[in-house]
Design a protein around this nucleic acid. Structure first.
Length: 471
RNA sequence: GGCGCGAUGGCCGAGCGGUUAGGCAGAGGUCUGCAAAACCUCGUACAGCGGUUCAACUCCGCUUCGCGCCUCCA
């Protein structure tokens, strides 16, 4: 299984080959903890999770770093407005972030370095840039990267510096720059920073935006590593600047493969507070949607394509998941206690497995991978209907789907409760209903089904008797 | 202005120069006391106009519409 990824650096889909044999080194841009993350952020984190899981699925160990940006304009502004120290301000959002990714079944990374814990590393890196003549100190004590001194500036974005134009978004305190393209690696303290400041060889101040990613990625992953990801909006300037700083300091290639995911839209519109379609994960959970349903919607799109997030899509996800769950329950029932044996795996399932793997390997084509799974669901249901699936075969298919789910992370097999686990009153009603059914007392049978439904249990009648499932 | 992306059936969403994407919703059918599930069948989908080609949703050009980045936004 050779993975292929679209590399932003080359704008091509390339075969993926790890640089080192022990692990694939992966740096994924993480949250700025000034607020709870919104659904658009999670699109990126889900994409990164799928990437991580796919690499592992292909047999490579992964060493993933996700940064926590806990010092920047917004966190400082928030902390000052709240009148609390920076750390106290960011803490709940950091906790919230980890709670959220658990809800979405996002696998944890190996490292979550916080920017404020790596100031010395950043200062050291800036020192290297100064030593090499790539950065200069301005009169106010800020340090800027000198873009003109770095040949090939702009990668992995395709930015031509001459196309840049100064505008309203160029921050006020950056007029000391020698050239419009130069960017701060160290920002001299100013009024608005309050008590957020660190001592440095250039005076009191705080790190520039991009330097944390350079310092932390290289600390944990080395000066050249396999994959760096982020949202497409980070391509420029963040990733271009990060590359310039890192390669400027080391003289080595920084990242081999860059992957960028597209944005999310909500009901066809850009997400924004003024449109009222700005949702955090907890907003959606409060509306009654589960993390799993949200994950399904986010998984069922290609990462390089703008995704239209709608409530209809969430409802569709709910139905699709119910279908998957029902199939899982059927397989479990058919398999009983029989162990999975690969030899018993039906041909259609083997074909499904191959289609699934091929789709993943093709630049994370999750929609197609999911289609392969649903193909197996249809085949499997038909086989079960026709009595053509042995217990061992059912076990093998269940195991196969479990394998697919190590990447998808949306299945929930084996959740059908054993009858012994049902509450006594429910068991009694089920027994009564069975008696009524044997007496062909349909009115009583239907009444009990309704009563059980009111208690939160869904009853279905099958040729082999009634089934009971938590709603 | 610079750079880039997109427009697929009611909705979400893949895809390829000629062969069913898939899911959800909807219609009909099988099964069923009913319901549900499951299975089968069903949509003259590829923004518009030209071009290339034996053949284009798929390649090229133009048009229309929408979107992203252009200095701290995933």
């Amino acid at each position: 299984m050779t993975l292929h990824f679209h590399n932003t650096l080359t704008r091509r889909i390339e075969p993926f080959e790890p640089l080192q044999t022990d692990a694939v080194r992966l740096y994924t841009c993480g949250p700025t903890v000034y607020n709870f993350a919104h659904i658009g952020n999670f699109r990126a984190y889900i994409f990164e999770d799928l990437l991580r899981r796919t690499i592992r699925h292909a047999g490579y160990p992964v060493m993933q770093v996700m940064n926590l940006t806990d010092v920047d304009d917004k966190t400082i502004r928030g902390a000052r407005a709240a009148g609390v120290p920076l750390r106290d301000y960011t803490r709940p959002y950091i906790d919230g972030f980890f709670a959220d990714i658990r809800q979405l079944n996002i696998e944890p990374a190996e490292f979550y370095p916080a920017a404020t814990d790596h100031i010395p590393e950043m200062i050291a890196l800036i020192g290297r840039l100064c030593d090499r003549g790539l950065a200069y100190r301005s009169d106010d004590g800020s340090v800027y990267f000198n873009v003109a001194k770095f040949p090939g500036y702009g990668r992995p974005a395709s930015i031509d510096l001459s196309g840049l134009r100064g505008g309203a978004r160029v921050a006020h305190d950056e007029y000391e720059k020698e050239s419009i393209g130069d960017f701060a690696v160290w920002k001299a303290w100013d009024e608005a920073d309050g008590d957020v400041a660190w001592e440095s060889p250039w005076g009191r101040g705080r790190p520039g935006w991009h330097i944390e990613c350079s310092a932390m990625s290289m600390k944990y992953l080395g000066e050249t590593f396999d994959i760096h990801t982020g949202g497409i909006d980070n391509l420029f300037p963040h990733h271009a600047n990060e590359t310039a700083q890192s390669e400027g300091a080391t003289g080595k290639p920084f990242v081999k493969t860059w992957l960028h995911c597209a944005h999310l839209r909500i009901n066809g519109e850009k997400m924004s507070k003024s449109l009222g379609n700005f949702f955090t994960l907890r907003d959606l959970l409060e509306k009654g949607w589960s993390g799993r349903e949200i994950r399904f919607v986010l998984v069922n799109g290609h990462y390089r394509q703008t995704l239209n997030f709608t409530f209809d899509a969430l409802a569709a996800a709910r139905s699709a998941l119910a279908r998957l769950d029902a199939f899982g329950d059927r397989l479990a029932e058919a398999a009983g206690t029989t162990a999975a044996a690969e030899a018993s795996c039906p041909d259609w399932a083997e074909r499904g497995r191959q289609a699934f793997d091929a789709a993943l390997a093709d630049d994370l084509n999750l929609p197609e991978a999911l289609a392969a799974v649903f193909g197996m669901v249809r085949e499997g249901n038909a086989a079960l209907d026709g009595g053509a699936l042995s217990a061992a075969g059912a076990a093998a298919v269940a195991a196969l789907l479990g394998r697919c789910d190590t990447v998808l992370g949306v299945l929930q097999f084996g959740r059908a409760p054993a009858s012994a686990a049902l509450p006594a009153d429910v068991q009694a009603m089920l027994a009564a209903r069975q008696t009524a059914r044997q007496a062909r007392n349909w009115a009583e049978s239907d009444r009990l089904r309704e009563a059980l439904k009111a208690l939160g249990w869904e009853i279905k009648d099958t040729p082999s008797g009634q089934t009971c499932k938590r709603l």
